[in-house]
Structure formats: C-alpha cells, structure tokens
C-alpha cells in the first residue's frame, strides 16, 4: 500500500508553484512555469507567414508547438539534441491541448509558433509545458475563450495522487500515469492520456481531482499575467 508519499505531501497536494510572464523579451508572448523542480519556459511567435506555402491553411492559422528538453535537463545521462519520437508526440498533444481555446479563423494562411523548453525536470514536464504555453499565448494577446491548465495524476497501489514527481513515476511496482489538461472556467478536458491500469470509478475520481488541481494552477497563471501590468502604488 502507498500510505505516505515519498516527499511527505498529502495525496492531493501539489508541489510549490511559480509563474512569470514576459520572460523572453524578443517573443510576442512568453512565460515560465515551475512546479516543484520541473521548470518550463514557453515563447510564442506569430501569427506570421507560413513557409513553404503548401503548409498553409487558407481557412485558418496553424498552431505549431515544439516541446524540447534541454540536453542537461534529464535525471541521468545527457539527452541527445534534436527531436525524438517522445518529444514529437508531446509537441503534437500540446497542440491538441491548446487548440480548443484558440480562434485561428482570424489568421488564415499563417502560423503561430509555440516553443517550449524544459530547463530542469522532475516529472510532469508535458503538463508544465502546456501550462506555460497557455500563459505565453495569453501574454501574446490572443483571443482565448479560456486558459489551459495541466496536471499529472498518478495511481499508485490504487491510491490517486496529484502532481507526480520523478520518484513516484519510478515507483517499483508500477503506477498509472495520467496527464490531463483542463479549461479551468469551462471545466472541460483538452488533454487526457493514460499509461497504466485504472477503472471507471477511479478515472471519474481522478478527473474530479485533476479539475480541482487545475483551478489552483489557473489562479497562479492569472496572478502571473496580471502582475506584468501591476501598477506600483
């Protein structure tokens, strides 16, 4: 039985979080998001002309996300630079997680580039990347009907835990890893993956807990976006 978490957190307790927008001055929008020791930065460029032309969609803009772990950001050996199968898939699901809040009809024939870089990792990297990217898009002034907040849920020995860290991810008897992203206002799901065993009841409970966690992340995203324009009294 998993009775007590390795780092002493409560089962529904997230690690300390920190967020900041405007961290990459050259970009149209940018943000940093840290959860525990996982640190992601995201920068948005665009909408801009998409070349070559055959990639263009005359109906709407194209969202192109690029997730990357810096060579030194893994827990073991150096990660070889360049896209891997893993990073390509994460880039793809990141696009799908963000698309529901955007309205790209306004920008036919263009591309919106979102670059996500992980500086340091302790699990939950795709969720941290999505959370940072959503802030960067908002910072870039896009019309978005909601933000997107993401969290990783784990099921260890039938116990649901929020915000899995590396130690839990490597749990010897195996665990079920379930990253999810929500539109916090609407409470709707934009990313859901599952790697491991669970059942209907557990999933329902996990989704409820995930939604609750994402509301807390949203508050942090909100404060970070507002702080950029804070007027010192």
């Amino acid at each position: 039985m998993y009775k007590k978490r390795f780092d002493g957190r409560k089962f529904d307790e997230m690690r300390p979080m920190e967020a900041k927008v405007g961290v990459v001055k050259r970009a149209d929008g940018s943000a940093m998001f840290r959860i525990g020791k996982t640190i992601a930065i995201a920068a948005v460029y665009g909408p801009r002309e998409l070349h070559p032309k055959f990639l263009q969609n005359p109906e709407e803009g194209v969202l192109r996300c690029n997730y990357n772990m810096m060579a030194f950001s893994g827990s073991g050996e150096r990660i070889k630079p360049g896209p891997s199968r893993r990073s390509k898939e994460i880039s793809h699901i990141t696009e799908k997680a963000l698309l529901p809040v955007l309205n790209l009809k306004e920008f036919p024939g263009t591309v919106i580039d979102v670059f996500i870089e992980l500086i340091q990792t302790d699990a939950g990297t795709r969720c941290a990347g999505i959370t940072a990217a959503a802030m960067a898009l908002a910072d870039a002034g896009f019309i978005m009907k909601d933000l997107v907040s993401a969290i990783s849920i784990g099921i260890i020995d039938n116990q649901i835990v929020i915000d899995v860290d590396k130690e839990e991810e490597d749990y010897e008897d195996g665990m079920c890893d379930m990253p999810m992203a929500f539109m916090p206002k609407a409470g709707e799901v934009t990313l859901l993956q599952c790697d491991g065993f669970t059942n209907k009841e557990q999933l329902k409970k996990a989704l409820e807990m995930g939604k609750e966690a994402c509301r807390k992340i949203y508050e942090i995203q909100k404060t970070a976006l507002k702080n950029k324009y804070k007027v010192e009294e």
């Binding site: 990459v24 001055k25 020791k37 640190i39 810096m70 060579a71 030194f72 950001s73 893994g74 827990s75 050996e77 150096r78 500086i119 340091q120 990792t121 302790d122």
Partner: peptide, 23 residues
C-alpha cells in the same frame, strides 16, 4: 538546473539571456 545537471548557470547581459548545463 541543479536537480538535473552536474553544473548549470544563467547569464544576463541587458535583455540578452543564455543558460548552460554540464553533463
């Protein structure tokens, strides 16, 4: 990136920013 890298640093000169890590 102390958790991940054997050594790491960030340098800012004005708005120019770079980071480095050692493995």
């Amino acid at each position: 990136s102390a958790k991940s890298a054997e050594g790491s640093a960030r340098v800012c000169i004005g708005d120019t920013e770079v980071i480095a890590g050692i493995k």
